[in-house]
Design a protein around this nucleic acid. Structure first.
Length: 429
RNA sequence: GGAGAGAUGGCUGAGUGGACGAAAGCGGCCGCCUGCUAAGCGGUUGUGGGGGUGUAUAGCCCUCACCCCGGGUUCGAAUCCCGGUCUCUCCGCCA
């Protein structure tokens, strides 16, 4: 959510930002009008309330009973006017809030201007795709053949976009999870959190998934709980409606969770293999920082995510999103893409395994996450950031496809050996 | 799931319709005093919004709302009524 005062006082600046996103700006005019109406009503109703308060205080001291009754009747009438004005304020304010929640974050001044994803900028690439001296296979073929992946039975029990990891496949994913968590905890200074996978509605408003993207979420109507699409949601909301002491910042959390997405918008896309499922696991990093630190913290967040690719010795690249490709809540965003050899008649591809974003105060304002810059100072909104470190299925794809051997076996990356009891190779039974 | 109790400021905890944004204590901050430490003394100390005055998102002034959340009763609600959420105790069940 943007600051209403910013919208009021620097309207052109705000509209300019929305223009850069390619987002409509007429909503800003709507908001300004609602805001004006609300404040006008507020001044009116508040002066009436002031009158009622002061008169009401004198009533018990009025000894003349006729006079007393007269005042009470007067106040009763005043109360009716207040009630109707209050109702009006409430309805205007509700509309205003609704509109406010629909406005995306403004792009960071460092986010490159662009019209579509072709304007994204490849910032750096580490490592080159492996040159195979045999015909490499896609992960679904390798996985099925090794008996570590069973897509058919996944579909049988839960429907399309579900799969089973079995034996060494399940172990490999578990090893990746433990490896990632350990690196972030021990080497990068994050504190592990194990959050609920179901949250209340307000948490999704906090991160910006609602109101606009509800159709990608699973919602249990009976208990009104929502399955998380990413651990970003529960972890960011950890400190909602709190005022943190400045010396607690920066807070850096890492969380493993399953994630649940309906993928309605990508029907028919990426249906092959395990690239896009309704349920997947992810290790997520979330930061709460002082505003002046957030630019630097985004860079280190990207570096922390990249470090996983580096340690796995898989080629990857960092792509900075242009204004057209920013997510709703992000001011600046980098994607980390890992190389997957793919094949089976298809080219290899860069798979998005992490999105690292600086949301500045956008989520913090929605979720009410503040801190006190110094003793006695007025609370201010923190800046929040997050990024995957990394998404499991696509990392798994990259490991399987990049580390495949001609006989269909898969070499275990050196970094994962300690997590697989020293196992060197997956060879099937 | 059944029965009961409860939710007040950073914390403890008063307050059951009228000057209560809230006693008292603790803690915090500022100052005084004491040649250390401890104690003592005085002051101060929640959040958000609106209006005014300011170059000011600095001060200052006025004002409204907030005693878990949402409704209601009343001239007036922390206090009464209804709904919700959460916590605790006992029983039941359970990984």
């Amino acid at each position: 959510m943007l600051d209403i005062r910013l919208i009021r006082e620097q309207t052109d600046f705000v509209k300019n930002g929305l223009n850069r996103l390619g987002a409509p700006t007429d909503i800003i005019d709507t908001i300004l009008e609602l805001d004006r109406r609300k404040r006008r009503l507020l001044t009116d109703v508040e002066s009436l309330k002031g009158e009622r308060n002061s008169v009401s205080k004198t009533i018990p001291r009025i000894t003349d009973s006729a006079e007393r009754e007269r005042k009470i009747a007067e106040m009763r009438q005043l109360g009716e006017r207040i009630a109707s004005l209050d109702a009006e304020v409430q309805s205007v304010d509700a509309t205003l809030q609704k509109r406010m929640l629909e406005v995306p974050n403004l792009p960071h001044e460092g986010t490159p201007l662009g019209l579509n994803e072709s304007d994204n900028v490849v910032v750096r690439q580490i490592g080159d795709p492996r040159a195979f001296d045999f015909a490499p296979k896609p992960h679904w073929e390798l996985g099925e053949k090794l008996g570590i992946l069973d897509i058919a039975r996944g579909v049988k029990i839960s429907g399309s976009r579900f799969y089973i990891l079995k034996g060494a496949g399940a172990a490999l994913q578990r090893a990746l999870i433990a490896f990632m968590l350990d690196v972030h905890i021990r080497e990068h200074g994050y504190t592990e959190v194990y959050p609920p996978f179901m949250v209340r509605e307000e948490c999704l408003y906090g991160t910006g998934n609602l109101p606009k993207f509800g159709d990608n979420l699973y919602h249990d109507v009976e208990d009104d709980l929502w399955l998380i699409p990413t651990a970003e949601v529960p972890v960011t909301n950890l400190y909602r409606e709190e005022i943190l002491e400045a010396d607690l910042l920066p807070i850096r959390h890492v969380a493993y969770s399953s994630c649940f997405r309906r993928e309605r918008m990508s029907a028919g896309r990426d249906v092959r293999g395990i690239k896009r499922g309704h349920q997947f696991d992810k290790v997520e990093m979330v930061k709460f920082v002082e505003p002046l630190q957030s630019d630097a913290e985004l860079e280190s967040l990207v570096a922390d995510a990249e470090d996983i690719c580096r340690r796995l010795e898989i080629p990857h690249r960092v792509v900075q999103m242009c204004t057209a490709d920013l997510s709703f809540s992000a001011a600046m965003k980098y994607d980390i893409e890992i190389w997957a050899s793919r094949a089976g008649g298809e080219e290899g591809e860069w798979l998005e395994v992490s999105s690292c974003s600086n949301f500045r105060d956008f989520q913090a304002r929605r979720a009410g996450i503040r801190y006190r810059p110094s003793k006695g100072a007025r609370p201010e909104y923190v800046h929040t950031l997050n990024g995957s470190g990394l998404a499991l299925p696509r990392t798994l794809i990259a490991v399987i496809e990049n580390y495949q051997n001609e006989d269909g076996s898969i070499t275990v990356p050196a970094a994962l050996k300690p997590y697989l009891n020293g196992l060197c190779k997956l060879e099937g039974e």
